[in-house]
Amino acid sequence: MKKLSGVIIVVVAFLLSGLPTHSAFAQAKKKANKDTEDWRYEVECAGVGKEGTYMIKVWSYSKKPQVAMEQCKKNAVHAVIFQGFAGGGQGCTPQKALTNNPALEQEKADFFAEFFADGGKYMKYVSTANDGAIGAGDRVKVGKEYKVGVIVTVAKDNLRKDLENAGIIKSLTSGF
């Protein structure tokens, strides 16, 4: 009996020791989502992608580098819909956002809350280039946080088509 209670104590202690880590991770994730809503990310063109896609590099912030890396995907789709991005080297052309309605995020808040939820539909349109491997200079410690840059590919044609079909953004033919 004494042996059994010893085992229980060890198991409970093990679980408890894991909880703070899990909670810190969840908090970092929550903070990263808030950053996305507050446009706290940077996006730049990373080259000419395949037809129907944009290849962009997204910089995200978090205390946990893993969270920042994962958040880059969400930020990439967010940027393509609402922000657009500047051009630069690698034959990059500046691209405008999919919507030209500045109030769209508020007008369709319910749709976007579900769309950008963790594991939400946004995942369908984004994938990391180079299997998510990041360059040596793409993980920078800034104060207490990490700033992580990941190159991702966004399937912008599919994204636009689905948003048009869902009635979120207008298509070129709407009204005709």
């Binding site: 000419v48 037809e51 052309t93 405008k96």
Partner: peptide
Amino acid sequence: VLSKMDNFVT
């Protein structure tokens, strides 16, 4: 063409 058309259509 591929890189300019999106801006044109917008």
